[in-house]
Design a protein around this nucleic acid. Structure first.
Lengths: 309, 309
DNA sequence: CTCAGCGGGAGGTCCCCTCAC
DNA sequence: GTGAGGGGACCTCCCGCTGAG
């Protein structure tokens, strides 16, 4: 964790040279870090989601311009042919339901669905040992079991073949929900990707026991819920999306919307005091004006070190 | 403006079906709308910027994983070959300065640079008429001049050929700053794109006078500064980037950082009162703790209608 | 001026394979 | 395991062209 933070700050310094503080670029970078590094989405998934967003911007302009393909194409430097294809793609998606390539969730499907499928396909009965390898003494089984971190759910420990089967199952399951056009066939590369991701996210633990010469895999978390930095990363995305939504209303001069930025310098010894007071003040403000059954409102705020100018 | 808002809200409703409220997807959509529709960036520019952001996430992980190409590739389902190319690309960019494809500014270069180049290449002297077409009576010249909106800068009015020349010049100027690898040759498609964008952004006005059978072009704003909805759209991007930056510090449990969301319902008659009070309260809070020469801090907030759950 | 179709090239994302350390 | 190389499939972004309303 601390190593990650170090690298991150080092990276930020290097990037400031390259990006030269264009705010939109920073938004994209923050988002990619959150979705790929924290969420574990594929590189291609991020690109697809971004492409979809850009297509929606094109479609939006297409409607505004009175469904004029050529004009829309000129405005964004896109071929009329391509504009037409994009419009058709989106209209089909609206008509038939989900068929655009989007993130659709904070983490990839297989990361979230795997624990359930694991217990379903490889159940571990009360009186059985989670370790089912042949040629092991009860003592050796026990030592492997005890090698697991405390709090691990009671689930069977799989060998590489079983684990690969499970991954293929969960992959096929995730593909079932997708439309025919953009399903991905299962491949070794995909398998390795999912395996690394599951281990990296802490959902699965890989055991390289000296007792057996093959790697074993154990389920590490039963119901899926990220902790700590990962959990906050997801909350961050939620907040930013809502905040963006609020500011968009503000940018359109909609009534009942307000935004503000307060820039100031503070004595570090009073910083925590100030933040605590801010928290209380805003809660009181919201409480003061709250009316049951009233118009739905939200206030978002964030305070911290000023890095931008 | 109102037509745009109508279409936008109609679009939003359609999109909610398709996107199924994944917050990261919404962030991308908001960003694409702001950069492409408001900023006037090309479709390809948005895709390139998003790709660059994803590459940076890969590079970041590459460093964290001890410069292990293969592992990085598995984590994001990217070929080792491609990882290597991405790493090289970024390291070259850091070493040699700017060479990644990014937005780099809120609006494309040519939109901002054109007014200056216009006055430089086609100066309009004090005692000359801005209209330089042959075969027009002084009265006809005057009627064309008076057709311009008030507040237009004094600049020569160009015919289609001159305008195209000017566009090509500003395009070449913008390409000079780019590295050799990804320069775009000038093309008719690009010319039409820039022409539509300049007119659409209000920087240039197209005059289809009945007196002449060819379209004329007039400069509409001298120093470039967007107004109204466009101006707010850019402020919005700034705000979101800073807010994202603050939340990232919060997600990493950095000290002196705070974020909050207050959800409440309000009596519509008291809404404006509440927002005004909020504004004053937060300004007072910042003033209260401000210390000259202290630690740099920023507070951001936004309040409005709650649409998300 | 708009819409329609055709051609081509370049580069990227994906997949698989082998070989040496 | 890792690095480094080969291959091919497919899609998308760019460019150019011509012809029908």
């Amino acid at each position: 964790m601390s190593k990650q933070s170090e690298v991150a700050s080092q990276l930020n310094q290097e990037l400031s040279k390259v990006l030269e503080r264009s705010p939109a670029d920073w938004i994209l970078v923050y988002l990619s870090l959150a979705m790929m590094k924290m969420g574990g989405h594929r590189y291609g998934t991020f690109l697809d989601a971004a492409t979809t967003a850009a297509k929606l911007a094109i479609y939006s302009t297409f409607l505004e311009q009175g469904k004029n393909i050529r004009k829309t194409g000129f405005l964004y430097h896109v071929e009329p042919k391509r504009v037409k294809a994009i419009v058709k793609e989106i209209e089909d998606a609206v008509a038939e339901g989900q068929s655009l390539k989007v993130f659709s969730s904070k983490e990839p499907f297989y990361v979230m669905a795997l624990p359930f499928l694991w217990n379903e396909k490889f159940p571990c009965k009360e009186n059985e040992s989670p370790v089912r390898l042949t040629g092991l003494t009860p003592g050796e089984r026990k030592s492997i079991e005890e090698g697991l971190p405390p709090g691990s759910p009671r689930a069977r420990i799989l060998d590489q073949v079983e684990f690969s089967e499970l991954i293929e199952m969960v992959h096929n399951l995730s593909q079932d929900e997708l439309p025919e056009e953009h399903r991905m066939p299962f491949s070794d590369a995909l398998m390795m990707h999912m395996r690394f991701r599951l281990v990296n996210s802490g959902t699965v633990i890989q055991i390289d026991s000296p007792l057996v010469d093959i790697p074993l895999f154990a389920l590490a978390s039963d119901s899926y819920s990220p902790k700590g930095e990962r959990e906050r990363a997801f909350a961050m995305i939620d907040d930013v999306a809502r905040y963006f939504n609020l500011l968009q209303a503000w940018a359109q001069f909609k009534e009942g919307t307000m935004r503000g930025v307060e820039v100031f310098d503070i004595d570090l010894e009073r910083r925590q005091e100030a933040l605590d007071e801010l928290d209380v003040t805003l809660r009181n403000w919201a409480d003061k004006y709250h009316t049951d059954g009233g118009f739905p409102m939200v206030l978002q705020f964030a305070a911290g070190t000023r890095e931008y100018e």
